[in-house]
Design a protein around this nucleic acid. Structure first.
Lengths: 139, 139
DNA sequence: TTATCTGCAAAAGGTTTGCAACTGA
DNA sequence: TCAGTTGCAAACCTTTTGCAGATAA
């Protein structure tokens, strides 16, 4: 059974004239369903580990496409660029700094904040910390 | 007359055994007082333009030191890593996507937000848009 | 059929490191 | 004096690009 977010994104890509090729589909699926901040290299390794043949270049191209469409976001953490898939609606993030799992929350507390003298185009709210699973592991 | 933030940061660096050398002082001063998101290269160019001799390497080393001390933050914007000086207390940012000016605001609206199942270490709130000056310039 | 995509290898950029000379405390 | 700093050049990594063969529609 297909993940509906994967289907939605595939359709968006398709609308832009992009083809749903096998490696792209696999990369997209993993990127969307396993919601962790990853470096392109890690994404490449995770996909390769599933015995799927893919090139690092293809990963970069996919991530760049998603970034252009506002469907991914980059974080610079300890000198490394890590990417996360972002569903279309505005949301904030809980980011676990131990396992890099990311949780989306959609009821943003600063949604309608008005700013004098500043034309807001978008805003972003992130909470960094340790997720429940990692807290347990550490006692 | 010395900027008091520059003095404060200089003292912090000094406490860590770091010396306030001439190029470091100049770089620090510009980074702190001209509050724009910059790439290391831009910072290097801005300082060089003031007829101060400095190496790109020195810039990288200073930015990395400040990052380690939580006195700077990195943003990945359109594929470029840009850095901004961050004063010690928590604050949120208005970031102008045209001129990359950054404004700090210290009364954070989500200061005491509690999160179930997640141990929050820090949070970050950013507003991206166009600053007053750039709005005027564009009519 | 054909415009798009793929992976490789090479090129390009950005960042860090080694080192000998220099300098602040 | 001498530990920390500097800038250069080289090394290192990450990311992008060119291209010939493969592939979705």
């Amino acid at each position: 059974m297909e993940n509906e977010m994967v289907v939605m994104v595939s359709e968006k890509l398709h609308q832009k004239g992009m083809r749903m090729t096998k490696p792209r589909k696999e990369a997209l699926e993993l990127f969307i369903t396993e919601h962790h901040l990853r470096t392109p290299k890690e994404l490449f390794e995770d996909i390769s580990r599933k015995n799927i043949k893919i090139g690092l270049t293809t990963i970069y191209r996919m991530v760049n496409s998603l970034m252009e469409m506002n469907l991914a976001r980059a974080y610079s953490i300890e000198g490394e660029l890590r990417y996360i898939f972002c569903p279309p609606d505005h949301h904030y993030h809980f980011i676990c700094l131990n396992c890099f799992k990311v949780e989306d929350v959609f009821d943003c507390p600063v949604k309608d904040m008005k700013i004098k003298h500043f034309k807001v185009q978008s805003h972003q709210l992130d909470f960094f910390g340790i997720c429940e699973d990692c807290q347990k592991l550490k006692g």
